[in-house]
Design a protein around this nucleic acid. Sequence first.
DNA 1: CCCTGATTCGC
DNA 2: GCGAATCAGG
Length: 196
Amino acid sequence: MSWTDERVETLKKMWNEGQSASQIAKELGGVTRNAVIGKVHRLGLSNRTGVAPQPSPAPQPSAASAQPSAPAAARPEPAPQPAPEPAAEADEAEDAPIPMSAARRAIIPAGQPLPPQPSANEISPEALAKVSEVEKGAKKLTLMELTEKTCKWPVGDPATDNFWFCGLPTQSGKPYCEAHVGVAFQPMSSRRDRRR
DNA sequence: CCCTGATTCGC
DNA sequence: GCGAATCAGG
C-alpha cells in the first residue's frame, strides 16, 4: 500500500483528532503503526497541536560513528494536549445524576452478571463526568464486537435497543477503558460503615 | 504485558 | 520516501 492522497488525508485527520498511531494504522489498513508514525514525522506534524513553535536552531553534529552520549538539550516545548475540559463547575451538592436516564428502573435481565453498574452513590464526580463524556464518543459496540481490548462497559438498557458497549480501547488488561475503570473499581470507601 | 510516540537506518 | 527495528517512556 502506498500513501495516496486520501490515505494521507485520513492520516492527518485522525492524527489531529488525537487518534493513536495504531488506531490510524488499523483504520487505514495495510500499514503498521510504525508506518503511520514515520509518515507523520515526514509530514512534519508530529505535534498534534496547531503549529510547532519551531526553530531552535539546533545544530546537530553528525558524528559518524561513536555514540552520542551528550543529549544536548533544548527540547521544543512538547505536548500541549488538547484536553477540552468541560469542567464541572458550580454544581450544587449532593445529587450525582448518572446520565443513565430511565434505564435502570427497567428490568435488568438477570442473565449473566455483566459488569456491575455502579450504584452511583459516592463515586467521584469527576469519574462520572468523565464517563458521561466518554459515552458520547463511545464506539457503541454490540456484544459480539467486543474484544479483549475493547471496553466492555454496558451503556443503556439491555431491554431496549438503546443498548451498547463502550468499546473504547482498554488501557491494559482491564476490561474497561480508562474512564470506566474509574467507576468500576471503586476503592471501597463509603460503604464500609454500613450500619446494620 | 499492554500500550504510546520517537528515532534510526537500510532499502 | 518508506517502514521495520529499536528506543524510551507510561
